[in-house]
Amino acid sequence: MPFALGPRATSAGYRLFAFDKAGSTNAEAMSRARDGERGPAWFVTSEQTAGRGRRQRAWIAPRGNLASSVLEIIDVSPSVAATLGFAAGLSLESALQKLSIEANLRLAGSDRLKYSLKWPNDVLAGQKKLSGILLEAEAVPGDRLAVVVGIGTNVVGAPEGTPTPATSLSALGVHVGAEELFSALSDAWVEFRGIWDNGRGFSEIRKLWLERAAGLGERVAINTGTMSIEGTFDTIDETGCLIVRTAEGKRMPIAAGEVYFGAAASVGAA
């Protein structure tokens, strides 16, 4: 089955660049933007050999996993563009819920899987990482911003030794292909990209994201790279920062860092 856009994505004018194998779909998308590609367009493969996650970690997608990046050329500031990552998380969670429901209908007696969104850019199944999201942006002519949103999902296999233990759809009993997942994801993106509306709809995105947030109200530790902060995961603010309420009652905004919940918070804070 070849990669194909969903019907909503096709109607919305998205184009598709599919590769049998690619180094990095994010790099491919940004290279095309530098060469004049104005999208909106998806770049997708089921085998990625040189992908990157946050903090320049390698993100390798063995054949059968989904590496996908969407290119949007928009007239917003970099800080507003950063909030598009929350719409990406919602898009993938929605696609996964749809496919899992359909898969579970084919698996008699199976419990419905629960997915959640971990700040700032992971999708979890239970307590394990299923997907990571990476945003990159560069200025392009016309005072606009080329924003590439990379979404890597473990379909048939998951890496080992990651900060958050990882899993795959196959290991969870959801036997769908990368192509099927991508079609559902491209349609869900149209919905949540529309709600986001170049940042004007972030208040609604924020509300929907918090309804699916992992660890909300729980003990949390954040390692920013220079310091560790412990407290309770209170909310995310109107800019997308995670708000931690410390033991002294102070509310601290966190713009970036590694997040650990519950018992893992003690390890993360060390």
Rank of each mutant, 00 (worst) to 15 (best):
T162H: 12
F233N: 02
S186Q: 01
L134I: 05
I205Q: 04
G177P: 09
L242I: 10
E136S: 07
S100K: 00
M227H: 12
V123Q: 06
N65Q: 07
V220H: 04
M252Q: 15
V156R: 13
G262N: 15
R8Q: 11
G51R: 00
D122F: 00
D122I: 00
A9T: 04
V123T: 04
S170A: 15
I60N: 01
G201K: 05
G64A: 05
R193K: 10
K207W: 02
S203Y: 10
P120V: 07
P253L: 09
G23A: 15
N121T: 03
V44C: 04
A255Q: 12
Y14G: 03
D197E: 14
G6S: 04
A81I: 03
N26F: 02
W42N: 00
E230L: 08
S79V: 14
V190F: 05
T49W: 14
S116T: 08
I205D: 08
S186T: 09
A50K: 15
L105G: 12
E230G: 06
A33L: 03
A213G: 02
L105Y: 13
L135Q: 08
R57G: 07
L107N: 15
F17D: 08
G262S: 11
L124E: 01
L210G: 01
P40G: 08
G215I: 01
T153V: 13
L216F: 03
P159L: 13
S116L: 02
E179G: 03
L113V: 02
K21C: 12
V156K: 12
S116C: 10
T164Q: 12
P78C: 14
P253C: 06
F86G: 04
L185M: 06
A263L: 12
M227F: 05
V149P: 00
G257E: 11
T49C: 14
D20R: 08
A22H: 09
M252F: 10
E47V: 12
K128Q: 13
R38I: 11
I236W: 04
L134P: 05
A125I: 10
N154G: 06
F182E: 00
R212K: 15
S100E: 02
P40I: 07
G85A: 08
V148K: 02
W196C: 06
A18T: 01
E93V: 00
E160F: 13
S186V: 01
Y14F: 13
L135C: 14
P163W: 05
I236R: 06
A264N: 12
S116D: 03
G249W: 10
S203P: 03
G199V: 00
I222S: 07
K98D: 09
L145C: 07
I222K: 13
A184F: 05
F17C: 11
A139Y: 15
Q97H: 13
T45Q: 07
L90Q: 00
A184I: 02
P253G: 06
K21E: 15
E136W: 04
T10E: 15
I254W: 08
M1V: 12
V156I: 12
G152H: 05
P7V: 05
D35E: 15
I222Q: 09
A247E: 15
R38Y: 05
R32D: 15
L96W: 00
T224Y: 10
P165E: 08
V70R: 10
L113S: 07
L66K: 01
G215L: 01
E230Y: 04
I73C: 12
A264F: 06
L134S: 11
G152T: 03
G142K: 12
V220L: 11
S24Q: 15
E204A: 03
R52C: 02
K207I: 05
M252D: 03
G177D: 11
D111N: 11
V244Q: 10
P253M: 07
